[in-house]
Amino acid sequence: MLRKLPLHLALLLLTQCSKCKNDPRPADPVSQLPPVTQTGANTFGCLVNGQAYTPQGNNGTSNFAVLYEPGPTGANLNLLTYRITSNGRQYLNLSCGPVTQARTYSLSIPVTEGTAGYADTSRPRPCDSYESNQAPSYRKGTLTLTRLDLQARIIAGTFELTLAQPGCDTIRITQGRFDKKL
């Protein structure tokens, strides 16, 4: 029995060390996004073709801006974001108007209530830019304002979007959320 003790200890040590390896499963992309809130938390995030997109980096301007510009028939709303990565820069912008209340606005073509654009400098031309007014192109999506509180100066919502153009991969933007103090 004493002769087998070192063997058992060695096996026990090996089984414990095998748990020290990094978990090979990547983190769930949705878990890398900020939570959906309506408190003015200054957050933005979405999945772009299944990969987490959150604003990051600094080029001298804010990497997440919400412009709410009132007019006589409602406001123009613009969400502007960018992220700087080791591969390049990505830009995502959403616009709609006239905005008069918290509700769902169409981002689809033909342009009626809103527009959207996406650019990624790491992609080859002409597939590096999906501009909403570029022809021929495809755009379908919605932006839902879940809170538009001008007294508290909070605007929050969710969005989803599909962009495509001939000869290029389709860009699918899902699980979009934003929450901003104006």
Rank of each mutant, 00 (worst) to 15 (best):
Y105W: 07
A119P: 04
Q16D: 00
T37N: 09
I109A: 14
S62I: 00
Q134F: 12
T81V: 07
T100C: 03
G114K: 09
A52N: 04
C127N: 09
P110G: 09
G71M: 07
I84Q: 14
G74T: 05
N93C: 06
N42T: 02
L92Y: 10
T43M: 05
P55H: 03
L92A: 08
T43G: 05
R83W: 01
P98M: 09
R139E: 04
D23W: 08
N133F: 12
I109F: 09
G71C: 04
S108P: 00
G97E: 03
Y138K: 09
N78Q: 13
D23E: 14
G88K: 00
L145Q: 10
L94G: 10
N59L: 15
Q56Y: 00
D23F: 11
A135W: 05
L145P: 06
N22R: 13
V111I: 13
C46N: 05
A52L: 12
T15I: 13
R123L: 15
Y91V: 15
G141W: 07
V36K: 14
E131G: 15
A116I: 01
G57L: 11
L143N: 08
K140F: 01
T54Y: 07
C127A: 11
G45P: 02
P98Y: 02
G74V: 03
R125M: 13
G88R: 03
L13C: 14
V66T: 04
G74C: 07
Y91D: 15
Y68E: 02
P70V: 03
L67F: 14
N87I: 11
Y138V: 08
T121K: 01
P70D: 07
L77P: 01
L107D: 02
Y118G: 12
N93K: 12
G141C: 10
G45E: 08
A135H: 05
P124A: 07
Y68G: 01
P98S: 08
V111G: 03
G45F: 09
I109Y: 10
N76H: 12
N42H: 12
C20G: 11
S137E: 01
T15C: 13
Q101M: 07
R89G: 14
R139A: 10
N59I: 14
S106F: 01
P35T: 02
T73H: 08
P34A: 11
S122P: 00
P26V: 11
